[in-house]
Design a protein around this nucleic acid. Sequence first.
DNA 1: GGACGGATCTGCAACGATGTAGTCCAACAG
DNA 2: CTGTTGGACTACATCGTTGCAGATCCGTCC
Lengths: 334, 334
Amino acid sequence: MAVTMNDVARVAGVSLKTVSNVINNYEFIRPTTKQRVLDAIDELGYETNLTARSLRSGKTNMLGLVLADLSIPYYAELASDVMKSAWDRGYRVLVEQSGNVPEHEKAALQGQFRTLTDGLLFIPLGLDAEQIIAGAGKKPLVLLGEYVQDPRLDMVLIQNYKAAAAVTTHLLTGGRRRIAVLGAHDGDTTGSNGLRLEGYKAALADAGVPYDPALVVGCDWRRDGGADAITRLLNSAVEFDAVFGLNDALALGALHELLVRGKKVPGEIAVAGFDDIDEARFASPSLTTVAPGRAEIAERAVELLIDRIEGRTAAHKVQQPEAAFELRVRQSAP
Amino acid sequence: MAVTMNDVARVAGVSLKTVSNVINNYEFIRPTTKQRVLDAIDELGYETNLTARSLRSGKTNMLGLVLADLSIPYYAELASDVMKSAWDRGYRVLVEQSGNVPEHEKAALQGQFRTLTDGLLFIPLGLDAEQIIAGAGKKPLVLLGEYVQDPRLDMVLIQNYKAAAAVTTHLLTGGRRRIAVLGAHDGDTTGSNGLRLEGYKAALADAGVPYDPALVVGCDWRRDGGADAITRLLNSAVEFDAVFGLNDALALGALHELLVRGKKVPGEIAVAGFDDIDEARFASPSLTTVAPGRAEIAERAVELLIDRIEGRTAAHKVQQPEAAFELRVRQSAP
DNA sequence: GGACGGATCTGCAACGATGTAGTCCAACAG
DNA sequence: CTGTTGGACTACATCGTTGCAGATCCGTCC
């Protein structure tokens, strides 16, 4: 059996509650008593049973983090940042992989998972705002700036529109006129895909360059999605002198495929992405992309969520801070 | 307040314990009673409080996973696999990032963290076997095949030695004779670095190629570590026609740096790595490497740990299964 | 010298589930 | 008709903490 507060109390010759008070840094304890308790804790190797504490206090000091899959670099890096931010504030993070399956997302939103956490950080991919609002319980919930946007929900926003416009403008400034977009379908207007596509269109319009739907190719936001998409594009005989991948993974997949097929990057075709994952910097050629402020997103989201949990935010006041982005110009699109 | 079993019991007109029995699929319950309970659960939206269950049952159904940092692709991919394996067996995974700091590792090994989990999967980086054995409590512990090797500890082994020899032999077969090794120091013989270096040496010896310590360059197992190391090597005027990065990240960093400096890969210099992270396949040129059987490692480790937790393994019988590896020949070293 | 108040410590109930040890009753054997 | 068996259910204690409401102790003050 594990050592309990009772054992410590017996050894220290005080009441169980005094041990509890020492552990919780209760102010009014005689230094000598405190020392005796600490010595007993040391002697017995006592560890607080966090499960019991949680049951009694109603707080687990854990945050849930729902994302698609940790094997996707952007999510892994974000998760790492979230964990660090949470750790600094005395919380742990319990990650749940939805695998991009709406049922899994819904389960994470409602299920017993929630009883293990004080609040949830959620990167929705399959559910829309209505489903999220309907499905979520009473515990705090903060969305991480991806697909869903809704005035009723706390979330940290990514400047999808402006950042995508910045990337596009950069490509246009470099003299590119036929910029393919991978990862969206013509007509998308919501979600990260839609908003980024809209940003792209706006930048084109600003520069007086016509929008050509034939340049927009839908695909999975993964390396092989990008490789597939670029293959289809090349086979379609549509002319293009630049590629804007709506995230880095697919941009890197496209970059790889272009090089395999003997295209010169950036000589013939410039490539740009979105996310600035670590890998982008070390690709060959290194990938021009836009950093959506990952560390800031993690920090703000954790802060927002914990403020809610600890009741520091007026209940009805929805918060939607926006993270700053930054264009990272590298070799693939100088 | 949340709905409790008591509320369900009242609504269903049965005792609290019967509700518990229904939830835990106790065999002898009248179908009509069961239905009434299930209806009440539905009506009230009852969710089992996992914290309470854990306290009473002494099981959390969570596994701890201690690794350096999720932003490192190999760990992220391994974590993803571990979570999936655990999920299939009814366990969740609580990840703890040690940041490669021995104090953090020790804290994760001993601290209150352990009270939250039924067992621990541990990728030690800074602690040695003695410290691990001294630090670990009574709960099950399984090491993931990296640095530490010890007959007293359960662990899933990576075939560091043989796999490294296979990579080296492949490079030799390709006609390379001056193969630089990045990520170890001359004289290392233990840990992943040492074992892989030994494998490299053995392959050289087999082929009758002399070992030259000047070709062995220590560095962090990260992209920028590899870039730095290759820079030092190039500046040192040591001749080499191949590079073996002891993990993929540093191999990719080295690859990037070689290309930046105008070297042809694999024309002038072949590059190989170790780990087969997703990124390796999409690098340009794609990276020759060795897959250590990540999915298998995760699966076996989780299986082993859960067998221990659930008492299906004889207490004293140490288990050390070994994962199969596979050479993945790609463009960087055909 | 008794009232007062703050420092210090204690005891008990409670958090929400599960384990153990029953109770009750119908069916059935002898 | 009694005794036994096993299905279906219940009561109560319990897991290890913390919140709440005191209980002591002791110095200070009038």
